[in-house]
Design a protein around this nucleic acid. Sequence first.
DNA 1: GCTATTAGTGAATATTGATTCATTCTTTTG
DNA 2: CAAAAGAATGAATCAATATTCACTAATAGC
Lengths: 210, 210
Amino acid sequence: MAYRETEKMRLRKAAARQRIAECTYECVAEGGFRNARITRIAQLADVATGTIYRHFESKEDLFAEIFRQATQREIAKVTKALATPGSATERLEKALRQFAERALKGPVMAWSLIAEPVDPKVEEERLAYRKAYAGLFEQAIREGIEEGCIPDQNARQSSTCLVGAIAESLVGPLSPTQTNLAAAKETENNDQLVNTIICFCLQGLTGIRR
Amino acid sequence: MAYRETEKMRLRKAAARQRIAECTYECVAEGGFRNARITRIAQLADVATGTIYRHFESKEDLFAEIFRQATQREIAKVTKALATPGSATERLEKALRQFAERALKGPVMAWSLIAEPVDPKVEEERLAYRKAYAGLFEQAIREGIEEGCIPDQNARQSSTCLVGAIAESLVGPLSPTQTNLAAAKETENNDQLVNTIICFCLQGLTGIRR
DNA sequence: GCTATTAGTGAATATTGATTCATTCTTTTG
DNA sequence: CAAAAGAATGAATCAATATTCACTAATAGC
């Protein structure tokens, strides 16, 4: 017996794995899963293409892991926004704003997480993601109904409408940011846009003019 | 000179072209553009793969034409709904219902037209489609603002929210039909679903509880 | 320093699916 | 019917990438 994995090596391998993951994230944020090539990721991470396969079973597995990591971050943000004090409507507004602002900052990633067609293993992750998301908004809507600040309705269906209105407005094919990237960078415009969307969403939810 | 294209041949070729187009539509309606293989289309149309290239420059061109044909149909339906008599709100409700019901009938095609990532030439067609669509809803919202039944707002942004809420609810990854196809076939459920969405959309637009 | 073991490499291979083109089949006309 | 022109065919080719694997480099323990 002349070689056994030592702590040092374990750390180094973990670091390499992490670096690959980060570069994959970068690639996806740039052009979506579809345009994230293994060779490009290897280049960015400064390893050989084969090395990636020593750390991940396949491209699909790698993507699934990146998807999971990315969504966990998003979910955490929205969860936090919903945990602040205030009425359900106020908390929902915070959460929607959080969601919208995150999406505006990284529209390609947001689109990849929400709508880009992906391989089955990644789609599985998306299922978990959407359940978590829908669950969060749904729960908040239910609380609003109990509190009386939101009229009785199908919370699940309404939460889907919320996500759809935001997603389409910010990252969808009808989005103004797709055709006018320059304008999208003007923070004022973005604030304006987010306000309009949130107004629409909260009115849709409550039926109360704001 | 021993051969010249005759009327009979012109018709036969037109028929073949049409058949190819129809089979392509079928393929796309089944699994989106991504899964529409030339070989499969050729099989369905009962021609050799090479024949397709005698009628269309390339796969991209074929898809672009199918996209155009499909969207023209959709636009026509919504245009018609918006041309009926009644207040802007009433006409919008009819149009949204039309849109939603069409999408429910062919969710894969609806998704392909609205959101599926496609090649540049097809994307160009989509640009025209979305302009037409956004234009129709926008126009109706503007009329509503003038009539006084809809409060002043950014008509363009609101129309995007409308499309997003419907698209996500019916054909998006959060759609109930995606996870529960059996239930989606129950017409009652669908009516219920469409009503909830339209309620959300009209409240979002008007801020008036219905 | 030596050897066993694992990590890393990247050119070669495999796969998938669009596109081509030499060949065959049909139609038209004298 | 024969010749000319076009239409149709589908196996072969091409292109784009994911994946493999024979080989090299690095590390651990003696």
